[in-house]
Design a protein around this nucleic acid. Sequence first.
DNA 1: ATGGCCCGTAGAACGGGA
Length: 259
Amino acid sequence: MKIATWNVNSLKVRLPHVLDWLAEQPVDVLCLQETKLVDDKFPAAALDAAGYHVLYTGQPTYNGVAILTRKDTVGPASLIAAANPLFDDPQKRLLAASVAGLTVVCAYFPNGQEVGSDKYAYKLAWIDALATWTAALRAQGQPLVLTGDFNIAPEDRDVHDPVLWAGKVLCSVPERERFQTLCGLGLVDAFRLFEQQPKSYSWWDYRQLGFRRNAGLRIDHVLVDERLRDKVVGCTIDKEPRRREQPSDHAPVIAELGT
DNA sequence: ATGGCCCGTAGAACGGGA
């Protein structure tokens, strides 16, 4: 079973990329972030035709998340919640669903803009509430997978230029501590269960030829319940969609669970 | 020294992203 996450930076623009990618990489679960679509504009019919059930929650212009599940393998996901019940938030950044005996949480963490800003404070509070909620969901019994765009590079090896980024948003100590707090709930970073190429990233700035220079960050993650640790057989970042014309600035991350 | 791209909402620039 393959579970993937991908910040598409507008599903309206990137729908052809998603459909092409799913045709080549028919993952069982695909969590999307930054769909930037209100619910009545969500391309459910096109994804249905591609063989996927969909759950989604969106708003105009910003944010928006979705969980796609493959019809002929895992079947429809069962919605748990389209928001964190412990955090009053007008921004559509979370979906939790039950899929094939797993609790899957699709998360679009706030960016935080700049350390010390109001948006940074919101980011930290949002993550704290997510941690509390995730612990409660996990305590309900099913193994849990927390995946999405975390907007946190957990370690310096996840950063193309750690000196440049030191202490900056996405890399600051409070953010990294919170990433570890999430792991401390009983989750493991699937990517780091395996030997990986150095300088592996999941996001590259559109500017300054970021992708060409591999000037990136690893900020998209799949955290897998430690009770499933022995079942995780791989975790990879697929850079191929980032090479396309008019790409998202993020690449999909895929974790594979064996039986 | 600064911003350099992309997207959505506009219907011109601007907020937001990371």
